[in-house]
Amino acid sequence: MAEQVALSRTQVCGILREELFQGDAFHQSDTHIFIIMGASGDLAKKKIYPTIWWLFRDGLLPENTFIVGYARSRLTVADIRKQSEPFFKATPEEKLKLEDFFARNSYVAGQYDDAASYQRLNSHMNALHLGSQANRLFYLALPPTVYEAVTKNIHESCMSQIGWNRIIVEKPFGRDLQSSDRLSNHISSLFREDQIYRIDHYLGKEMVQNLMVLRFANRIFGPIWNRDNIACVILTFKEPFGTEGRGGYFDEFGIIRDVMQNHLLQMLCLVAMEKPASTNSDDVRDEKVKVLKCISEVQANNVVLGQYVGNPDGEGEATKGYLDDPTVPRGSTTATFAAVVLYVENERWDGVPFILRCGKALNERKAEVRLQFHDVAGDIFHQQCKRNELVIRVQPNEAVYTKMMTKKPGMFFNPEESELDLTYGNRYKNVKLPDAYERLILDVFCGSQMHFVRSDELREAWRIFTPLLHQIELEKPKPIPYIYGSRGPTEADELMKRVGFQYEGTYKWVNP
């Protein structure tokens, strides 16, 4: 592979701008107003304001973009700056750019259920340069409990009458099928589907988006991507930290609602779906819905739930269990780990287990898709061969690698495990991989909904998990304890083995 010439960040961002501006969906010269509902909250200060700053800094926003914060707290732009700027990672050389960014910011205080507050917000936006005809993007960085009041008031008082209007809704989209349907029906009564952007930030990850290209742009994968060759698929999300004093919020939802029903299920769809007619948003989402419709409700015998306990040999936070978090209700049975087996009941995947695993306070930070292939028929190497695996590593250190057998150097035919490896950090030294939120917010500006969740996708996802969630809430089974920093409950490994996964433990990928 030829040595790549190092590029400056300015040059890299210039390439990104060229890609972005050559499309006809990006209205570079139009006025846009980006409204952050819930501007005083954690999500706004840690993710949304920093993301908008990065896009502005790199010249990736339309030229005439204004940012308006809205929340109940009586704040000023200076207050917003004070709480969000520490997350910007701005350099001293960017000081003038930073001043320009905050000059485009404003803030309006108001209630979430008060019509007069929204009329005041609308008047404020109209007073901005060309504000009355601007395109408006409303980001709901809010708890779902206020979605209905907020969307109703936005629709009645704050819509642009000339430009387009788009609304970005953060997960969780309800707690179960019934609450999700209620919320979807409410929002759909106010906005068209092409105006609604239900954001799952995992769909903005580079390697998640790469799944489609790997599958449908490489001839070698087509013939082997089926039940005849693939023994099982494992989708993993692991965090090495616990709730760390923020367990009160987590306890309301648990690990299945927080990660599995959305992030992991979306990745499953991209692995299992048929080739779409095109890369058009609805063509892709149509195929994802077909996959979900082929999955039956989760069966309790295919589920393992766990909850982390303190590690007596650990240090600091590792010595504390979930129930030691003062914000967690006493005696909570909320799971911090889950392993679930699903089956896609169609011709391509009949009988292939899709194993979804996620948890907190585990032994490493990792998100990946792992396809394990069947054993080689007619073994001539005296059971020395391990199964081939194709691994798409989402985070950290984005990579695609194939675990395969090669001859060990020497005189004899002794096979050993090795890999074919594409590590993004080595291959793409001159490429700026956008943060997931950067990519998705740019998608909203461009009107691309491919990486957002459609209402029928959402409904099918909740259909699969709601009976299990209701059973857990009714019966309150005690989750299996696992030690902070471990791989999780051993019962999860036993479940995976029972459905056909072979864990060798003899080879570990190392970032080159």
Rank of each mutant, 00 (worst) to 15 (best):
G41H: 15
I224L: 11
I48T: 04
M207W: 15
R17C: 06
Q195K: 03
R246E: 15
G38P: 03
Y112N: 03
R57M: 02
E85Q: 10
T145D: 12
E3F: 02
P223W: 03
I36L: 05
E93P: 06
N126W: 03
S179V: 06
G247Q: 09
D194T: 07
S84T: 09
R219K: 12
I52E: 00
R215Q: 02
M207A: 15
L130W: 09
T10C: 08
A2Q: 07
F21P: 04
N210W: 06
F138N: 01
R227P: 00
F237G: 02
V208M: 14
N122M: 08
L121E: 00
V150C: 07
N185S: 14
M212C: 11
Q111C: 03
A231Y: 05
R192W: 05
V77T: 07
Y249G: 15
T151F: 09
I48Y: 01
D181T: 08
A217P: 00
F26D: 05
I220M: 14
G38F: 02
E252H: 10
L130Q: 13
D79H: 07
Y107R: 01
E244R: 15
I234C: 12
L121K: 01
L235A: 11
G38K: 00
R136L: 05
A6V: 11
S157G: 07
L96K: 13
L183T: 13
K46L: 05
L235M: 07
I230C: 06
D113F: 05
R175G: 10
E18G: 11
R120F: 05
M207S: 11
V68N: 00
V208N: 11
Q111A: 10
L55S: 08
I167Y: 03
I67M: 06
H201D: 08
V233H: 01
D100L: 08
G245C: 07
A44D: 00
A231K: 09
K205N: 15
F88A: 02
A231F: 03
I196V: 12
R227M: 04
I48G: 01
S157A: 12
V208S: 14
D176G: 13
R198L: 04
A39M: 02
E239A: 04
E239M: 11
I234P: 02
I224F: 06
R192I: 04
A127K: 11
H129E: 13
Q133E: 05
D113T: 11
S117V: 04
R246A: 11
F26S: 06
L190M: 08
T243H: 13
K45Y: 08
I15T: 08
R175V: 12
S106V: 09
F173G: 06
P143S: 04
Y49N: 00
I35A: 07
D100R: 04
F241D: 14
W225Y: 07
W225I: 05
K97C: 07
I35S: 06
N165Y: 02
L43C: 09
A116H: 13
R104W: 02
R192A: 07
A25G: 13
F138K: 00
P240M: 10
V77A: 08
D30C: 09
K82P: 02
R215E: 01
L60R: 06
N226H: 11
I168H: 00
E156Y: 07
K152Y: 09
I168K: 01
R166E: 00
R81W: 09
V5K: 14
G247P: 15
R9P: 06
G245I: 10
E170T: 10
A44G: 03
I224Q: 12
I36Y: 00
L183M: 11
F216Q: 08
G131N: 09
Y249H: 14
V150A: 06
D176Y: 05
D100H: 06
R175A: 12
A109M: 12
D114C: 10
W164Y: 04
V68Y: 02
G254S: 06
T91R: 12
I52R: 01
E18A: 13
R175C: 13
R81E: 03
R166L: 01
P223E: 15
Q209N: 15
H201I: 03
G242Q: 04
I220Q: 08
V12I: 09
G163I: 01
M125V: 13
S123C: 04
W54A: 09
F173R: 05
T65D: 01
G248Q: 13
V233S: 00
Q83L: 05
A134D: 05
V68E: 01
N165M: 06
R257Y: 03
T151K: 02
Y147F: 14
N229V: 04
T76Y: 05
Q11K: 06
S123N: 09
P143T: 07
S188C: 13
S180C: 01
I234R: 14
I220D: 03
G245E: 12
T91P: 05
L214W: 08
N185P: 02
Q195R: 02
I199Y: 02
K95H: 08
Q4R: 14
G242A: 07
R192E: 07
Q209F: 11
V146D: 13
I167R: 00
T243D: 12
Q195V: 05
E252Q: 10
V68Q: 01
Q111I: 07
A134T: 12
D113C: 08
L235Y: 10
L60E: 04
V108R: 02
A134N: 11
Q111G: 05
I234M: 13
Y202V: 11
A217V: 01
A217S: 09
A25I: 10
A103H: 11
F26R: 05
I256C: 08
D200G: 15
V12M: 10
N135Y: 02
W53C: 00
K238H: 13
A6S: 12
F173A: 09
S73I: 03
W53Y: 06
S189R: 10
D114P: 02
I199V: 09
T10N: 08
W164R: 04
Y197M: 01
V68D: 00
I162K: 14
H32F: 10
G38H: 03
G69R: 00
T51M: 13
N165R: 03
S117R: 04
I167F: 13
S106Q: 05
F102A: 02
E252P: 03
R227Q: 07
L16P: 03
M159K: 11
D113V: 03
F221C: 14
R198Q: 03
I255N: 00
T145Y: 08
F56A: 02
I162R: 12
R104I: 06
L235I: 12
T151G: 08
T91V: 12
I80H: 02
F216E: 10
A44C: 03
Q28I: 12
N64R: 08
A90I: 09
F87C: 03
D42R: 10
K152Q: 11
L203S: 13
K95L: 12
F34E: 01
D200P: 10
Q28H: 07
L75E: 08
A116I: 08
F87Y: 06
I199A: 14
A103W: 06
Q11G: 07
P172R: 03
T76K: 08
F56N: 01
Q11V: 04
E206V: 08
D176R: 05
R120S: 08
N153L: 08
I15S: 04
E3D: 10
Y139Q: 03
V213G: 12
Y147W: 06
W54Q: 12
I256D: 02
R57P: 00
L96E: 12
E252M: 09
F26N: 05
S184R: 04
D181I: 05
K46T: 10
P50W: 00
D181F: 06
F26Y: 14
A25K: 07
N135W: 01
N218S: 03
L214N: 08
A6N: 13
G131C: 05
Y107H: 03
T243Y: 09
H124G: 03
P50A: 03
L121D: 00
I154M: 11
L128Q: 10
F66I: 05
E170N: 11
Q28L: 13
G41Y: 04
A71H: 06
N185E: 11
T91M: 10
I196C: 03
D251Y: 02
A2C: 11
V68F: 03
S84E: 04
P144Q: 15
